[in-house]
Computed example of a mutant assay.
Amino acid sequence: MDFVLVKFVHLVGVVLFLGNIIVSAVWKNAADRTKNPAIIAFSCRLIKITDLAFTASGVLLIAIGGLGMYHVGRIDLVARVNLQSGIFLFIISAVIWILGLIPLQRRMARVSHSAATHNELTLPDTYYRAARLWNFLGAIAVILPIITLWLMLHP
């Protein structure tokens, strides 16, 4: 297997992953500003779909490409503190997604869908509390992979 090919796979994964997590935050916050339950429910549903399509596939390509570069390039991880740190931060970001963001997204989707289905004009405070926590955890979960990208690019 060619190093350039696995590096390309890795970078495509990075673009899909980072692009989607940043765009999802923009979409969701724009939808939240409308305070319209139907628009918010639509946004939450699209975020679930794009997370599966782009974030998850991005993570998969990042892992395949990273492992491929490790094996093909015979990279010594013990000697590369930047790679160790980047991998650690990426894992921390994944834990934040799995334990925090995904459950919050599901809760917000349920609440907004219920409000939209019942033609309610406002969302309950529980939605906005979850949204604030989602924004806080999401900011951390975006910043960590950006730092990871920086660490991966610098020896």
Rank of each mutant, 00 (worst) to 15 (best):
R33H: 14
D51G: 15
R74G: 06
G66M: 04
G138I: 03
T55H: 04
V26H: 11
R80A: 15
Q84Y: 01
Q84F: 00
I146V: 14
I47M: 03
Y70H: 12
R132F: 06
V15M: 10
Y70R: 05
I143E: 07
I143L: 14
I147L: 07
S93W: 05
S24P: 00
I87G: 09
L151S: 00
V111A: 10
V4A: 15
T117I: 08
R80H: 11
I143N: 08
A94Y: 01
I146K: 06
G68C: 05
T126H: 06
N29R: 12
G66F: 04
P103F: 03
K7S: 15
L11W: 08
M69S: 12
L46T: 03
P155A: 13
A38Y: 00
V59S: 15
I146Y: 05
V14T: 15
L101D: 09
V12G: 04
A79N: 12
A25Y: 02
A109P: 04
N135L: 07
W27C: 10
T117A: 15
D76N: 11
R129Q: 13
T148K: 02
I143Y: 03
P155D: 13
F3S: 08
N82Y: 01
N29H: 12
L46A: 02
L11D: 14
L123R: 00
R80L: 13
Q84P: 03
F17W: 08
V72G: 02
F3A: 01
V95A: 09
A38K: 09
A139L: 13
S93D: 07
A38Q: 09
I92C: 07
S24N: 12
F17L: 10
P145R: 08
S114R: 13
A41V: 06
L144T: 06
L61T: 11
N82T: 06
S57V: 14
G100N: 03
W134Y: 13
I146L: 14
D2A: 13
D51N: 13
A109W: 00
V72M: 04
G58E: 06
T34A: 01
A63V: 14
V12Y: 06
L67T: 15
L101P: 08
A116V: 06
W150G: 15
L60W: 07
S93E: 07
A31W: 01
K35W: 09
A56V: 14
L104K: 10
S93C: 09
R132L: 10
L61E: 07
R129D: 09
